[in-house]
Simulated scan of single mutants.
Amino acid sequence: KAKTTPENYPLSINALMNGCNQKSNRAPQMTLDEGQVQDALDSLRKSGAVALIQGDGRVEKFRHLLYDWLGVEKAELAVMTELLLRGAQTLGELRGRAARMEPIKDIGALQPIVDSLRQKGLLIYLTSPGRGGVVTHNLYQPQELTKVRSELGSGEVDEGPSQPMAPPAGVSASGMSRDPHSPTIAYRADAAPPASKSTDNGDLQELRGEIAALKREVAELREQAESTASELQRELNDLKSQLGV
Rank of each mutant, 00 (worst) to 15 (best):
T4R: 12
T5Y: 01
T5L: 03
N8G: 05
N14P: 02
L16T: 03
K23M: 10
K23T: 14
R26C: 01
R26E: 04
Q29I: 13
V37T: 13
Q38I: 10
S43L: 11
I53S: 01
G57E: 02
V59F: 06
K61P: 05
K61E: 14
L65C: 00
Y67G: 04
G71H: 11
E73V: 04
L77R: 01
L77G: 00
E82P: 06
L85Y: 05
L85H: 06
L91S: 04
E93N: 10
R100Y: 06
E102C: 04
P103L: 14
D106S: 15
D106L: 11
Q111K: 15
R118M: 12
L123N: 00
I124H: 03
T127K: 14
R131S: 11
G133M: 07
N138L: 07
Y140K: 00
Q141A: 13
L145E: 15
S150P: 07
G153L: 02
G155Q: 11
S162W: 11
P164N: 12
S172I: 04
A173I: 11
S174G: 14
M176D: 05
R178I: 11
D179Y: 12
A186F: 15
P193L: 08
P193I: 06
S196V: 06
G202H: 04
G202V: 03
D203C: 03
Q205W: 03
L207N: 03
G209V: 00
I211R: 05
E217D: 13
L221Q: 14
E231H: 12
Q242F: 14
